[in-house]
Amino acid sequence: MSMETIMQIIADNLTDVPQLTETTSLRAELNVDSLDVIMIINALEDEFSLTIDEDDFVEVDTPAEIFNLLKSKYSVE
């Protein structure tokens, strides 16, 4: 797993993302809503063949936080 992969998955599942960095706030800066979050979770599940608890995403808001969550809780390498 790389940060680039995470950012690519996020960008692929949102419409016309202008600029995405590791610290972009998905909710505040990109107006990501609950359905967007579900789409991102689904795509991450497909990419890494795992099942993600949607509640884990309540606290994460940036690509870096998603990366860290997947690494620490889901042991994605």
């Binding site: 599942n13 419409t15 359905l35 579900i38 789409m39 689904n42």
Partner: peptide, 12 residues
């Protein structure tokens, strides 16, 4: 949202 079941959006 009122349905309280699993939801998966697909791309437009």
């Amino acid at each position: 949202r009122a349905a309280k079941c699993k939801v998966r959006p697909f791309k437009h």
